[in-house]
Amino acid sequence: MHFISKELYFPPVESATVDGIVAIGGDLSPERLLLAYRSGIFPWFEDDEPIMWWSPPERMVLFFEDLKISKSMRNVLNQKKFTITFNVAFREVITNCKKIARKDQPGTWITDDMVEAYCNLNRMGIAKSVEVWQEGKLVGGLYGVDLGNIFCGESMFSHVSNASKVAFIYLAQYLEQKQYRLLDCQVYNDHLATLGCVEIEREDFITILQA
Score class of each variant (00 low, 15 high):
175 L>H: 05
100 I>P: 09
211 A>H: 15
69 I>R: 06
121 L>Q: 01
171 L>R: 02
166 V>P: 01
54 W>A: 06
90 F>N: 04
50 P>N: 08
6 K>F: 10
57 P>E: 13
38 R>D: 10
95 T>S: 14
37 Y>K: 01
169 I>S: 04
131 E>S: 03
105 Q>M: 15
164 S>C: 07
43 P>L: 04
108 T>M: 01
201 E>S: 08
19 D>Q: 12
85 T>P: 01
80 K>H: 15
86 F>Y: 15
192 L>H: 04
71 K>S: 14
165 K>I: 01
201 E>N: 12
77 L>H: 02
59 R>S: 12
97 C>Q: 00
56 P>G: 06
145 V>S: 10
189 N>I: 08
138 L>F: 02
65 E>K: 13
113 D>M: 07
68 K>I: 15
105 Q>F: 14
162 N>Q: 09
83 T>I: 15
118 Y>M: 01
24 I>W: 01
134 Q>L: 11
138 L>T: 03
30 P>W: 14
117 A>F: 09
102 R>Q: 11
136 G>Y: 03
112 D>T: 13
54 W>L: 05
74 R>I: 11
44 W>I: 02
78 N>G: 11
111 T>H: 08
11 P>C: 08
58 E>G: 08
114 M>Y: 05
86 F>G: 03
95 T>W: 13
28 L>G: 06
96 N>G: 02
100 I>V: 15
65 E>T: 07
121 L>M: 01
63 F>C: 06
186 Q>R: 10
107 G>Q: 03
69 I>M: 04
83 T>A: 14
88 V>F: 07
131 E>V: 06
29 S>A: 04
162 N>P: 02
173 Q>T: 09
73 M>W: 07
205 F>Y: 15
126 I>K: 13
196 G>L: 08
74 R>K: 15
87 N>T: 05
96 N>P: 00
79 Q>G: 13
151 F>V: 05
64 F>E: 01
152 C>L: 04
21 I>G: 02
24 I>M: 06
148 G>E: 05
137 K>R: 14
92 E>Y: 10
145 V>L: 09
150 I>N: 10
174 Y>C: 09
91 R>V: 14
113 D>S: 12
2 H>C: 09
10 F>E: 06
120 N>M: 14
100 I>H: 12
210 Q>M: 13
82 F>V: 04
4 I>N: 01
61 V>R: 04
63 F>W: 12
46 E>N: 15
177 Q>L: 14
186 Q>A: 07
184 D>H: 14
159 H>P: 08
43 P>H: 03
16 A>G: 12
